[in-house]
């Protein structure tokens, strides 16, 4: 439909949603930017405009650089582990066989659970004495590896990550499975007839064809990873010794625990900037993928 319409019709449909969206999403986003230049404490209207002081301070804040380090580890793990696992599961379970449908449903199950509940359940799994992780390690004779996973500074971040990945894997699998339906079966057959083994077919045919899905998975996982707060808060509150304190947790504690809202806003702005970089890369990749496949 290329004909243009009098603006009054689309406007009448768009006005209300745009108003709500602008007031409660866009305006607060811009406002955050504003607060990041102030020293607002979270109550009252008394605050000073302090320019870039928050940002100067934040880049010399040891808690902040610690949060950045943890976020980098978290992001690195998030982009690899659930992506590969989700891809492997999708490849193993593609097709409409009854058993595949059942397996798929069970792998999807964590997606519909709240991060709060996932966090609570995984806290028991990691419980030092009675948790199944340590029980399992002791049973197979690796009892010396058993530790208080969430209280041990060396393991806390990774332990929380595993719980997070438990949910993210299913989500990635959904996207990869959708992508696999667009890989033409004759192409895969042709590769096999030409003598390619399973591994070669996978590497040279299926994975290149899955490129658009892979880009989506990586972008979504990265964004999810950056903003994930709930599961970390539930499991460790960023501890022990801030070892699982990511940028999202840092932003919350500075703003709502220490009532440094201006300072917290600057952390939120940095988090937002990181998301923008991912979105930018994502759109560039999808544009490139469109060129490839159109």
């Amino acid at each position: 439909m290329l004909r243009r319409h009098p603006w009054i019709f689309p406007a009448s449909f768009l006005l209300l949603p745009l108003l709500v969206y602008f007031t409660f999403v866009i305006l607060p986003t811009l406002n955050s930017l504003f607060y990041s230049f102030t020293d607002w404490v979270g109550y009252g209207t008394d605050y000073q405009f302090i320019g870039l002081a928050n940002f100067e301070k934040i880049f010399s804040d040891r808690l902040f650089s610690n949060a950045i380090r943890n976020t980098a580890i978290w992001l690195g793990l998030a982009m690899t582990v659930p992506t590969l696992l989700g891809l492997a599961l999708a490849l193993g379970l593609q097709g409409k066989r009854a058993i595949n449908t059942v397996y798929k449903s069970l792998f999807y199950l964590p997606i519909c659970l709240s991060p709060v509940i996932i966090g609570i359940i995984w806290v028991w799994l990691y419980s030092p004495k009675l948790g199944i992780v340590n029980i399992f390690l002791r049973t197979i004779g690796l009892g010396h590896l058993a530790t208080a996973w969430l209280a041990n500074p060396n393991t806390a971040l990774f332990a929380v990550f595993v719980a997070w990945a438990w949910q993210q894997t299913g989500l990635n699998m959904v996207i990869f499975l959708a992508g696999l339906t667009s890989v033409p079966a004759p192409l895969v057959e042709a590769a096999k007839v030409d003598g390619a083994n399973t591994w070669q077919t996978l590497r040279k045919v299926i994975i290149p064809m899955l490129r658009p899905s892979t880009v989506v998975v990586l972008a979504l996982t990265a964004i999810n990873a950056l903003k994930s707060f709930e599961i970390i808060w539930v499991m460790t509150r960023g501890g022990p010794f801030n070892k699982s304190d990511t940028l999202a947790v840092f932003m919350y504690s500075e703003s709502f625990r220490k009532f440094k809202m201006g300072y917290g806003s600057s952390a939120a702005v940095i988090l937002f900037a990181m998301t923008l970089i991912i979105i930018f890369l994502y759109f560039r990749q999808t544009a490139r993928a469109d060129e490839l496949y159109d």
């Binding site: 999403v25 607060p28 986003t29 607060y35 964004i223 919350y252 806003s265 952390a267 988090l271 979105i279």
Partner: peptide
């Protein structure tokens, strides 16, 4: 794609 953190403080206010 917006992380909720960016709107947290202004919406709270």
């Amino acid at each position: 794609f917006l992380p909720p953190q960016i709107a947290l403080i202004p919406v709270f206010r």
